[in-house]
Design a protein around this nucleic acid. Structure first.
Length: 429
RNA sequence: GGAGAGUUGGCCGAGUGGUCGAAGGCGCAUGACUGGAAAUCAUGUGAGCGAGCAAUCGCUCCGAGGGUUCGAAUCCCUCAUUCUCCGCCA
């Protein structure tokens, strides 16, 4: 949610910034409704003040034995008028809220306008591996190594699921261990969170109501709207930890991370080129989240993207970092960096981490505040998140970038301690 | 799944229809006292919304939502949640 006062005071500026996110708005109706709402509140509150005043006199009058019948009749009328007005106000509230929550966050000033085509690569690590042989697709590699079972995954869960088996499961776990260990070194607090979340979590994160059909919804009664869903990313949980809380300024920043599987419907997004584990209904991810003061969130974003990048570097994978154009940032975010790893078979870079600053957008939706040390004033916190990392793109990248002519795959050094020192995966007969 | 008891301000806790945004205590802040601290004393100490340049004023909020009433923290209904006991279970 963006600040309603920004729109009241400077609708043109907000309109211009949203346009950079390729979002067209017209504030005419909103501004009229907002004005009407405030007028209604003003007159209704005057009525209430009068009512309260009279109410306070009633015990005294009764004590003195006065007849209150006429007074009660008038009070009843006033109460009905107040109720009518309150109904009108809540209707306006709802319309205004619906409108406000449909607006994406404003992009940062240093984020360029436009869509995906305006994303800018800001740095690159390593270079595209050159193969003296015909490199294989990761699906063929993992099958020949016997570390992923697609067929049986589909048998159990349907299209979009797979099974890590044997050294595949251990490699996946090693990757996650590696991420966890690095985050602990950096002083991030590890959390294990519920995988089933209530609706409000999706709302605070900025994913609902717009993207509520992208998650697996849970409900026991066909006739009611769902109240819970399976988390699509740990961000949805982590960003709700401090919902409806006030945090003393000097306790910030909070730095958390959590490993969870991520469950997504990914309806209709399948393409042949994304075969394998590039896009599944369930994938593993370690997610980082920070809660900061407004003035430190910029620096926190750089810290997060650097952390994520170091993880990819540690695995020796060629990748690049892009700063997204406004229109390619997700709705809640003011600025986003993507880390994309090179997938030879796709001849393309695929996202392994997205590091974003949500500013106060999520905090406003979730009512998350900080109290200033000196002034005791309340302010909205800033929230940031970054994957660190998703394995579903990392595993293919390792398979393809580290593949050898004999069909084996070199295991990155940093992972070996969790695999009993194993240096390479060998094809099964 | 069944039965019972709770949910009040940063925390503890009183309050069962009327002047209660809410006693009392703790904590915290400021001041006095002190060489300094402790103790003590005094004063202050929630959030949201609306009006106002501001000082300030008004409205709303006692788990959430609805209802009864002139009037609800207090009565009724629904839901959430915590605790205790019983049952079932990985």
């Amino acid at each position: 949610m963006i600040d309603i006062n920004l729109i009241r005071n400077n609708p043109e500026m907000v309109k211009e910034k949203l346009a950079r996110k390729e979002f067209e708005v017209d504030f005419t109706t909103f501004l009229i409704q907002d004005k009407r709402r405030r007028e209604l509140i003003f007159t209704t509150e005057q009525l209430k003040a009068e009512k309260n005043k009279v109410s306070a006199q009633i015990p005294q009058m009764k004590k003195e034995g006065n007849d209150c019948t006429l007074l009660f009749a008038k009070m009843k009328q006033d109460s009905e008028l107040i109720n009518d007005n309150d109904d009108k106000i809540s209707l306006l509230d709802k319309e205004i809220d619906d409108f406000l929550e449909s607006l994406p966050n404003l992009p940062a000033d240093d984020v360029v306008a436009g869509g995906k085509e305006n994303n800018a690569v800001i740095r690159t690590f390593g270079s595209k591996p050159q193969f003296a042989f015909e490199p294989k697709h990761h699906v063929d590699i993992v099958e020949s190594l016997g570390i992923i079972d697609y067929t049986r995954g589909v048998k159990l869960g349907g299209n979009g699921f797979w099974i890590y088996k044997n050294l595949g499961a251990r490699l996946e776990w090693a990757i996650l261990n590696y991420f966890i260990e690095e985050h602990l070194k950096d002083g991030y607090e590890m959390l294990m969170v519920p995988h089933i979340l209530n609706y409000q979590c999706g709302y605070t994160a900025g994913q609902f109501p717009k993207f509520k059909d992208d998650v697996f919804q849970l409900k026991n009664d066909e006739n009611v709207e769902f109240t819970h869903f399976i988390l699509p990313t740990a961000e949805t949980a982590l960003v709700n930890l401090h919902r409806d809380e006030i945090i003393e300024e000097n306790r910030l920043p909070f730095k958390y991370f959590a490993y969870t599987p991520c469950y997504r419907k990914e309806a209709g997004s399948y393409r042949a080129e994304e075969r394998g584990m590039i896009r599944g209904h369930q994938f593993n991810k370690v997610e980082m989240v920070q809660y900061t003061t407004p003035e430190t969130s910029e620096a926190a974003l750089e810290e997060l993207v650097n952390k994520a990048e170091r993880l990819v570097q540690g695995l020796g994978l060629h990748h690049r970092v892009s700063k997204l154009a406004a229109g390619d940032c997700s709705a809640s975010m003011i600025k986003t960096y993507d880390i994309e790893v090179w997938i030879p078979s796709m001849n393309d870079y695929k996202e392994v981490s997205s590091a974003s600053n949500a500013g106060d957008y999520q905090s406003r939706r979730g009512n998350m505040k900080l109290r200033r040390k000196d002034s005791y004033k309340l302010e909205l916190m800033h929230t940031l998140n970054a994957s660190g990392l998703a394995t579903s793109r990392i595993m293919p990248a390792i398979m393809e970038q580290h593949q050898q002519e004999d069909g084996s795959v070199i295991i990155p050094e940093v992972l070996r301690k969790w695999l009993g020192g194993l240096e390479r995966l060998i094809p099964q007969k």
